[in-house]
Amino acid sequence: KDAFVYLASPVSCAVFAIKGEIVDSRESGIKIGSFEEPSKYLINRSFIIPPLKAASDVKVIKGPNIKDVPVKEPLKDRIEAEVLLKAGDNITTDDIMPAGSKVLPFRSNIPKISEFVFSGIDATFSKRAKEAKEKGGCIIIGGENYGQGSSREHAAMAPMFLGLQAVLAKSFARIHKANLINFGILPLQFKNPADYEKAEKGDRLVIKDVINSLNGSQVYNIENITKGAAFEVVSDLNDRQREIILKGGLLPYMKK
């Protein structure tokens, strides 16, 4: 699937709607009024309820369908996990975490919503991921532009809950890559795109010396112990992103 996303100003969108096509609003023939920014905006703070001084004593009452946000453990120096899914190019966040009336009611219930991860591609994924979680978790392989589409955080949060340790792809969509990092999942890119062919669904991969690689060259050696093959992947995380990954995600990072 390809996601077609266009960013435009409200004025441009209004012109598009009137003209029935995407045009240059400056050359549309429609007179567009000017707008002057006010020197001051009126702000209504009456609806803001300040926190109580003894906020820690307040009990938060949750409905049965609201569960705590799962938190990943700190990054391990050795990852050994099974490839549970090998995907092609342009996998969308909707492919990863479907939406719709059947799924969205569980958006505050990660254990339940995780049952729908990749359900449109492989209905057995969630069940197999839960089993693999007891054996070190899982790895996903993707092609170009992995995670394109909406910035759906559940497309990273739910796979993390299922034990996803890393995604190996030819390239990543920018926002989804950031979400993977925020939930402690390593986004690793094939150093040589042709190495995409060196691992298949069901193969068991080992990544050694993960922490030194992350803090150093960000080049990681992957050993496919099923096929007896080896290849390299890379990451390009900045200092803050490295710390987030090391802590296991943004939530534990913020608690440091």
Rank of each mutant, 00 (worst) to 15 (best):
F183I: 02
S114I: 12
K112P: 05
K1Y: 13
E115M: 15
D77N: 15
S235T: 15
E36I: 11
L84I: 09
G248K: 10
M254I: 10
Y220G: 07
A123K: 13
P70K: 06
F183C: 07
A54V: 01
A158L: 05
D2R: 04
S114H: 10
I79A: 00
I207Y: 01
S46V: 09
A229H: 01
M157T: 07
L168Q: 02
D203I: 08
F183T: 13
L186V: 04
N221C: 09
G249A: 03
H176Y: 10
I121P: 13
S171D: 01
I211D: 01
K227P: 02
L168K: 02
A99G: 11
L250V: 07
F183G: 01
Y253F: 14
N238R: 00
L186K: 09
Q218R: 13
R128M: 12
S12P: 09
N109Q: 10
D77W: 06
K40C: 14
E80R: 14
D209S: 11
L42M: 11
P70I: 09
I175K: 01
E80M: 14
N44H: 12
D77M: 08
A173M: 06
E144W: 14
Y220F: 15
V23G: 08
E36R: 14
P252K: 05
K59R: 11
K170F: 05
A123R: 14
E21I: 05
N179E: 07
F116P: 00
L42P: 05
L42Q: 12
I48H: 14
S12G: 10
E223F: 01
S39I: 08
A178L: 13
Y220W: 04
R128L: 08
G202L: 15
L205Q: 09
I113L: 05
N179R: 08
A8G: 11
K191C: 06
K102L: 02
V60Y: 10
V117Y: 13
P105R: 05
V58Q: 13
K62P: 02
K67D: 02
V219Q: 04
V234H: 06
H176P: 01
A129Q: 10
M97P: 00
S25F: 14
F183A: 07
